[in-house]
Measured scan of single mutants.
Amino acid sequence: EFTQISGYVNAFGSQRGSVLTVKVENDEGWTLVEEDFDRADYGSDPEFVAEVSSYLKRNGGIKDLTKVL
């Protein structure tokens, strides 16, 4: 089950073990991109978060400006 990723309007994530599946949706709710990120592939949590965040930004993730990150 996908849940909204904090700080984004149209990005959602689903966690299974160490694998986080993220997706970005358009205004109609269609999935634009979907990608798996395995936490085990990264040396640290900040590196993992930075990679996921960068992916979302590159692929149309819209920041939720009503929330302070």
Rank of each mutant, 00 (worst) to 15 (best):
E1T: 12
E1M: 12
E1C: 15
E1F: 12
F2A: 04
F2M: 07
F2E: 04
F2D: 04
F2L: 05
T3S: 10
Q4N: 08
Q4T: 08
Q4I: 14
Q4H: 08
I5V: 06
S6W: 13
G7W: 06
G7N: 05
G7D: 04
G7V: 05
Y8H: 06
V9W: 07
V9C: 12
V9G: 04
N10H: 07
N10I: 05
N10S: 03
A11R: 00
A11K: 00
A11L: 02
A11M: 03
F12W: 12
F12K: 06
F12D: 00
F12S: 04
F12M: 04
G13H: 08
G13L: 09
G13W: 15
G13I: 13
S14P: 01
S14Q: 10
Q15D: 02
R16K: 10
R16C: 12
G17D: 03
G17Q: 02
S18H: 05
S18I: 04
V19I: 12
V19E: 00
V19G: 00
V19T: 05
V19R: 05
L20W: 08
L20K: 01
L20P: 00
L20C: 14
T21F: 05
T21H: 11
T21M: 05
T21G: 00
T21Q: 02
T21V: 08
K23N: 01
K23R: 15
K23S: 05
K23T: 08
V24R: 00
V24K: 01
V24W: 03
V24M: 02
V24T: 02
V24E: 01
E25D: 05
E25L: 15
E25C: 15
E25R: 13
E25P: 00
N26Q: 04
N26T: 09
N26F: 06
N26V: 06
N26L: 08
D27V: 10
D27E: 13
D27K: 12
E28I: 10
E28P: 04
E28G: 08
G29K: 04
G29E: 03
G29R: 04
G29F: 04
G29Y: 02
W30M: 14
W30C: 15
W30T: 13
W30R: 13
W30L: 13
W30A: 13
T31F: 06
T31A: 08
T31L: 09
T31S: 07
T31R: 05
T31M: 06
T31D: 02
L32A: 06
L32T: 08
L32E: 05
L32V: 11
V33P: 02
V33E: 05
E34C: 15
E34T: 13
E34N: 05
E35D: 07
D36M: 12
D36C: 13
D36S: 15
D36K: 14
D36Q: 14
F37I: 02
F37D: 00
F37P: 01
F37N: 00
F37W: 01
D38V: 02
D38I: 02
D38N: 09
D38M: 02
D38H: 03
R39F: 03
R39C: 07
R39W: 07
R39S: 02
R39G: 01
A40M: 09
A40E: 09
A40K: 12
A40D: 09
D41A: 10
D41V: 07
D41N: 12
Y42F: 11
Y42V: 01
Y42E: 00
G43T: 10
G43I: 08
G43L: 09
S44P: 02
S44T: 08
S44W: 02
D45I: 08
D45A: 07
D45K: 04
D45W: 15
D45M: 09
D45Y: 14
P46V: 15
E47V: 05
E47L: 06
E47M: 06
F48P: 00
F48Y: 06
F48C: 04
F48T: 00
F48V: 01
F48S: 00
V49H: 13
V49F: 15
V49C: 15
V49E: 14
V49Y: 15
V49I: 13
V49G: 05
A50W: 09
A50E: 09
A50R: 10
A50N: 09
A50Y: 09
E51A: 15
E51G: 07
E51D: 11
E51L: 07
V52M: 03
V52A: 01
V52D: 02
V52Q: 01
S53F: 13
S53N: 14
S53A: 13
S54V: 07
S54G: 10
S54C: 14
Y55I: 02
Y55G: 02
Y55R: 02
Y55A: 03
Y55H: 03
L56F: 01
L56I: 13
K57F: 10
K57I: 10
K57D: 15
K57M: 12
R58L: 10
R58H: 08
R58M: 10
N59D: 00
N59V: 10
N59C: 13
G60T: 03
G60E: 02
G60L: 04
G60P: 01
G61S: 05
G61I: 06
G61H: 02
G61M: 06
G61V: 13
G61F: 05
G61Y: 05
I62F: 07
I62G: 02
I62H: 05
K63C: 15
K63Y: 13
K63L: 15
K63F: 14
D64C: 15
D64K: 08
D64I: 09
D64T: 09
D64M: 09
L65V: 11
L65N: 11
L65K: 10
L65Q: 09
L65F: 13
L65Y: 11
T66R: 09
T66N: 13
T66M: 10
T66I: 09
T66P: 07
T66L: 12
K67V: 13
K67F: 15
K67Q: 14
K67C: 15
K67N: 12
K67A: 12
V68F: 11
V68T: 11
L69H: 13
L69K: 10
L69E: 14
L69P: 14
L69I: 14
L69M: 10
